[in-house]
Nucleic acid binder design. Structure first.
Lengths: 342, 342
DNA sequence: TTGTAGGCGTTATCAA
DNA sequence: TTGATAACGCCTACAA
């Protein structure tokens, strides 16, 4: 590959002039610039960004660490980041952690190794505090959705508690009293918050949370299916199932159908996330819209601020949610015992 | 940040020795190595990969260019690449092109700019042939799924034609004669091939393709929904709908339900891709499993070979498919006019 | 407006 | 086994 020296020679100028021409803004006489452009064209020259980065001490890469990518939630989150990153001249390096602490830490180290300028984390595992934080400027890290309440980093999330309470409220207004829940992984902040929201909603409606049938899932399609089976097997009466994710709600729909139960006639079902597919489930899902892509965008915005001024004080952004009522919920049957048996 | 010189000083050796200790294999006396390790630990040193890359002329980054990422197909493809890439010591840079030629080309240039060592493309737009190909060693590029038949690059895909023909065959065996199709975007190789497969299957069964109701979609949930509406509105008789993607099949399921038609009693529906969610649709989808993740792995394998020996002759890998029969297909009704009217 | 030259942090070659 | 030193390709004072 041709380098800046080749261009300089061919154009009959010094490499400094070429460098200036390359970085646009500098002062280069139009005629000179033309000669340079021609040389670049002729040799099909591309600046070596490794060298440039070494010199300028930056890579223009942002790492986004996610536990996995075969999950619509992650996809849209990353998309939100991509949008802003490209505009700002940054590239997105996608890192799949499978919630492995070692792996995540290795990505933190990439910043120290100048492979990346910043790290956005959407994961239950948390980036260790690199030691240099105390001495040098802090490592640019933004946390999304999952983080300890006492973190001192910039962070963004939506209010899972209130969002889930809003769903419960919707069910209560429809006359439901016996509401079952399928939770997310409660060892994770997101799962726990959504469960808290469920309990909060129940309490606000004056319903007894202790009596509510609860099954523990992990947000996945499979978990929705299995947990519904479990709920049915237990034989507790319920007229609605409140799922902590759309994927679980879709799994629940599948299992209820197998049990010969009609949604929403026999049982109402609710989701959480408002995935695209949820508008096309049978029946279309009542859920709560959390701005997933918007979360990604907000995270990237925080990152850009951090990159601009690494000393900046950490901030927290909380995004709004919105109830989306579709056809998987309906008024509770008066008998209230529709789902008492399999 | 500490650099190699700091370590050398603290350990009382030369930077050359530190460098050797860092690259493991070299010959360094254990005692020396220990001193170096201590210094590294003490200063929390991380090698600057930009400098290392500059010197070694490589970045250890692989770019994966996809049109979008909010699509289960892409997600699993990328996951397949990730798995192998990490093992081989490469990082995956995710590039979202939105099928924009300019954008894709800018990623090709990243290779020339040493920002990445190779490019894997899963997109309808094709990487331009950088001129240096003719003179220097060829740019390491691997094409997946979408590529012109006459490409000279390494490439991987599955046989969409035969796979779709297999689905038609399945329907024919169930006694379906009036089979409608919802196609993918036929200006794309993948969409066109799947349509060809449909026609091939029909012809093999001695059915008249010209009579088959065909609606044109774009693989999306929405397209499945709208195309089904269109099919119903036209009033042609059909007992089965053959969709070019699982997402469209799910959209079709939703629209058929609205029309009061039962699947599979009134109409059979088939998909293509075997997405995870398709096992949980109502009813679970009969589809064809194409190894999406396997495609990513195969692409990465080709890339690794290319990286090892850039002069290597391009190869083509074609992956096998598998029919997955679930509950969205059933024997055709004798009357054969189930879906004649809305 | 242009040129000279030092340095960014590594790796690799050659001697010792 | 270790050390000195020259690249790698670019940017940016500083000088002209």
């Amino acid at each position: 590959m041709a380098n800046i020296k080749d261009i300089a020679e061919l154009a009959g100028v010094s490499i400094a002039t070429v460098s200036r021409a390359l970085s646009q803004s500098a002062s280069v006489r139009p005629a000179t610039r033309r000669k340079i452009d021609e040389a670049i064209e002729k040799l099909n020259y591309r600046p070596n960004m490794l060298a440039s980065g070494l010199r300028r001490q930056r890579s223009n890469n942002i790492i986004v660490a996610v536990p996995n990518i075969s999950n619509p939630f992650t996809s849209r989150f990353v998309q939100g980041i991509e949008n802003l990153a490209r505009e700002a001249g940054y590239r997105v390096l996608l890192a799949i952690t499978e919630s492995d602490q070692m792996l995540l830490d290795s990505y933190v180290k990439m910043i120290a190794g100048k492979q990346a300028d910043g790290l956005i984390v959407l994961d239950t595992v948390q980036p260790c505090s690199p030691r240099e934080d105390s001495e040098d400027t802090p490592t640019p890290i933004v946390l999304a959705c999952e983080y300890p309440p006492d973190t001192t980093r910039s962070r963004v999330r939506h209010d899972n508690v209130e969002a889930m309470a809003a769903i419960v409220d919707h069910l209560v207004r429809l006359g439901h009293q016996k509401i079952a829940a399928i939770t997310g992984p409660i060892e994770q902040r997101m799962g726990l918050d959504r469960l808290s929201g469920f309990k909060l909603g129940m309490r606000r409606a004056g319903l007894d949370v202790a009596q509510a049938p609860i099954a523990y899932g992990d947000f996945s399609l499979d978990a929705g299916y299995r947990s519904t089976a479990e709920l049915l097997a237990r034989g507790d009466a319920f007229t609605a199932i409140c799922c902590a994710s759309d994927e679980m709600a879709i799994g629940a729909l599948a299992r209820l159908r197998e049990a010969g139960l009609k949604v929403p006639d026999d049982v109402s079902v609710t989701g959480f996330d408002n995935l695209r597919v949820s508008a096309f489930s049978i029946p279309p899902l009542t859920t709560v819209d959390v701005p997933i892509q918007g979360t990604g965008e907000a995270a990237m915005r925080l990152m850009l601020d951090l990159l601009r001024d690494p000393e900046e004080a950490p901030r927290e952004v909380i995004l709004p949610h919105k109830l989306v009522v579709r056809e998987s919920t309906a008024p509770a049957k008066k008998t209230g015992r529709a789902a008492a048996s399999k």
